[in-house]
Design a protein around this nucleic acid. Sequence first.
DNA 1: TCTGGGGTCCTAGGACCC
DNA 2: TCTGGGGTCCTAGGACCC
Length: 442
Amino acid sequence: MFALVDCNNFYVSCERVFAPRLEGRPVVVLSNNDGCLISRSDEAKALGFAMGEPHHLARPRLAQHGVQVFSSNYGLYGDMSRRVVQVLSSFAAGVEVYSIDEAFLDFSGMHLLAPDLLAYGAEVRARVRQQTGIPTCVGIAPTKTLAKLANRLARKQGTSGVVLLDTPARWQAALAEASVESIWGVGRRYARKLLEMNITTGAALAALPEAWLRRHLGGVVGQRLWRELHGHACLDWNPAEWDEAGEPLAANGAARHSVTCTRSFGRPQHEPAALAEAVATFAAKAAEKLRRHGLGAHLVTVILGTDRFAPTGGPSTHTACVTLPAATADTSRLTQAALQGLARLRQPGTAYHRAGVLLSGLERTGEVQLGLFEPAAAPVPPQRAQLMATLDRLNSQFGRAAVQLAVATAGKPSGRPPAWAGRAAYRSPLYTTSWEGLWQLS
DNA sequence: TCTGGGGTCCTAGGACCC
DNA sequence: TCTGGGGTCCTAGGACCC
């Protein structure tokens, strides 16, 4: 048995914890670069604002309805998410952090400890609400896919915020009421295909032969979906790992395969120095993340994007890959490789709208594969690793980017944001992770 | 002027190996 | 008329998720 705990309108809820006056009022949170709407309060949803709607199109209506708008503040949301997971960890032997606002709990055998799972779910909700201020919904079922369905039902008004689908009769009834596109694992393309065949409900999908799903819905992915809908759990379980003090070591026990940092620019960039500055900054961010996870990379991919919405036809994203002789998490080596990739990729005169750095070919630090014929490419010398540790400590103590490589600050007059910086006109303070942003009673 | 970012998994096809 | 079998690795593309 699994429970899926999902935070309601998570980013909006995080903002409301520190601005209680927004309770009951329409609120939206924008994506990076203030691009589009990615979190909406129930009131904003009722006013017709859509997920992913471009901000520049919604702006007049947002003003008209007096909607409170926030730029996204991932520092705040990440910290609130960590607090929620901390609370959840006391309710189950295993917790899998599925995303910033969702976690699965391992409820196998739980009915022996808590015969009334509905009541137990309600206790989870109440405790998270009390200790973090974040409202949640809980779905409980024998597979992740059915728990997801239960959670969706729990979000509907009129329920207590907890739904239990523990018998075939219960989940079949729920599937009969669920539209096929609302099933977890059925995206836009599959939904269209199914609707063309007049398969409109979860129950109708589950009634198809297992082999049909295998044939037409992504091979084994479709087959797993079929089994999950019939109550047979077959998706992976990747619980978080904790140290003795109860602090999370890794939010998700699954091996990570890549680390990415990409951003849209506030305005298009074509100057080599500005592009180099951006790419170096993204490489440094990705490298820092790598070190946090105790990983090294030996593949650096640079990404440059032109206008995605230009009617030119061809692809808008271009990549160049640089292979390192040995895996590393050293910022200067990774930056060097990234700049090499950038030089190969950049077309003089072209205006780029976004850039990024993707690190892959990941290995755990200490298990680094040595190049057989390249003794010179031995692992980063200990002083370098120490230097990186110091860099991370300084940046964590004195604020992000307190210490950077010069190339990442190329044309930046001190104190002013770089030319390529994205917009974030409505950002709330870092209430929980920075002294400057500390919440104050006003 | 203006449309996010970070992931995962699977398949197919080609290169290459013995 | 007719050209093996078994395997790995890599990349590109498609689909999905939040």
